[in-house]
């Protein structure tokens, strides 16, 4: 019979010999194989205690960056929301009032900024779209949770802690803690 593909293999339908039909030789062979696995290295990573090292280009949970003086960089231009293929980002803009210059870098800022982590596909297009270098994907990922609404991350969750005031929180948010 013509084989349909190069990888097609003729099934051997020869009746089994008596030894084969006792199954024992092949069973012992199989048992040898499984036994040898007892001594093999165990590749499991015990997750909460041990963590897989991520590459520096890993696309994880988003952070909203601050500039050197600790001011929010985002100007609520909405480009990230437009770029987002999963439509995971929503925001509301507000105007910076006099006296808030130490909080926001531009005169327009995001009063509300939400990312739905269940919609997000972690493609990183928001990061590429942002003209202000305001949004970055860190080396952490969204922890599991029981409720859907906990996956909508607001500004308090996303905004990175100030590098000068809270260096520890800053490192953690970037995923550099461990």
């Amino acid at each position: 019979m013509q084989a349909l593909t190069q990888r097609a293999k003729q099934v051997n339908r020869k009746p089994m010999t008596f030894m084969e039909s006792l199954y024992l030789p092949s069973i012992f062979k199989g048992m040898g194989i499984t036994f040898s696995h007892i001594f093999k290295k165990n590749p499991t990573i015990h997750y909460p205690e041990q963590q897989r090292p991520f590459s520096p280009v890993f696309r994880g949970l988003h952070v909203l960056n601050r500039d050197e003086e600790g001011r929010e960089r985002c100007t609520a231009c909405g480009l990230c929301a437009v770029a987002c293929p999963a439509e995971a980002i929503t925001m509301e803009a507000a105007e910076r009032l006099p006296g808030e210059e130490h909080l926001y870098r531009e005169e327009k800022y995001a009063a509300k900024y939400e990312i739905n982590m269940l919609r997000c596909i972690f493609c990183g297009l928001c990061e590429e779209a942002c003209p202000k270098d305001a949004i970055y994907l860190s080396e952490t990922f969204a922890p599991a949770s029981f409720a859907r609404k906990t996956f909508i991350y607001g500004k308090p969750d996303l905004l990175i802690p100030d590098k000068n005031k809270d260096p520890e929180g800053y490192a953690k948010a970037k995923g550099l803690a461990n």
């Binding site: 499984t34 036994f35 696995h37 007892i38 093999k40 290295k41 165990n42 590749p43 499991t44 015990h46």
Partner: peptide
């Protein structure tokens, strides 16, 4: 777990 290269319940 031992036979399948994983730790089993721990």
């Amino acid at each position: 777990g031992l036979l399948q290269d994983r730790p089993g319940p721990n």
